[in-house]
Write a protein that binds this DNA or RNA. Structure first.
Lengths: 148, 148
DNA sequence: ATGCATGCAAAGACTTTGCAAATTC
DNA sequence: GAATTTGCAAAGTCTTTGCATGCAT
């Protein structure tokens, strides 16, 4: 089941309709990397069809979220960011605070330790989010020998 | 060194001034729990001195962040949230998705595993953020036997 | 045909900024 | 006294909403 089918199924289930705009926004979204803002998605969609308005993009990225195709990424600041959620296994992020590079990873030891925390407090797990910050190798090197 | 001294030191260091408003906002902030929004802080400060404006609260909570007294909490939505950062060891969050209860914890195994991830990708660590979601014991119980 | 979806623009939520007056050092 | 802060209100960002029209079923 690919993303388009997921969306169609979701729509049919609740009497909603598939439209040209929806399909274009989905395509644009799928073609972009994770951490997409509504603004950037709007720009991308606008190139495919300049008749699509911002509000439609906002409305649909939210719809995709409800349909399980997108997920909001945690943010400190600035506009809301979305990432792909379908056939994208759960993962955590390792971000460079200098250049912004993002590595997505999954670490068994961390997942295991998290389960232990849930058990310790008697919570029933339903998901988590983790982001590690640091300097990527390139930036760390540049940092040590500025402009040699 | 308590919070007030930290602030005074920070201010002196850069030729800034300690004002009544600053002090009141700091007091209000210290008296509140973590995950304080500017709005709620404003309300609290307003009770102490109704001559203090919103802008001043916004300006100062940001100042506190720069001074290391506060830290922005990760959010999906809604207004920005701040938590205490001084003499509050790093910790992670375990939140109940039903009632919103938040447990702050530190887990050695997780911290160790994170270091391993940094090493694996060659990143220089600078911090991280993690939030686990689930149902707290109370909500889980209520969930299994709704209104018995 | 019957609604849902869209585009536009206006409104809303949250935050920042410009400026004259007040305050701190 | 010189310079930072403040309160107010206006402006800015980002997002949502109201409404008439356009479309999908």
């Amino acid at each position: 089941m690919d993303e388009r089918q997921v969306l169609e199924h979701y729509l049919k289930e609740r009497g909603l309709k598939m439209t040209k705009a929806r399909l274009l926004i989905l395509e644009a979204f799928l073609g972009m990397e994770s951490h997409v803002t509504a603004e950037r998605l709007y720009e991308a969609v606008h190139k495919l069809d300049d008749g699509i308005g911002q509000a439609t993009v906002f409305r649909n990225i939210r719809l995709f979220t409800d349909a399980g195709l997108a997920r909001e990424a945690c943010r400190d600041d600035g506009p809301r960011q979305y990432e792909h959620a379908w056939r994208h296994a759960h993962h955590d992020h390792l971000s460079c605070i200098q250049c912004g590079a993002v590595i997505e990873f999954v670490d068994g030891a961390i997942e295991t330790a998290q389960q232990a925390v849930y058990k310790k407090y008697g919570y029933v797990p339903s998901g988590h989010r983790m982001e590690l910050f640091g300097l990527c190798p390139d930036c760390a090197a540049r940092h040590n020998s500025p402009q040699t």
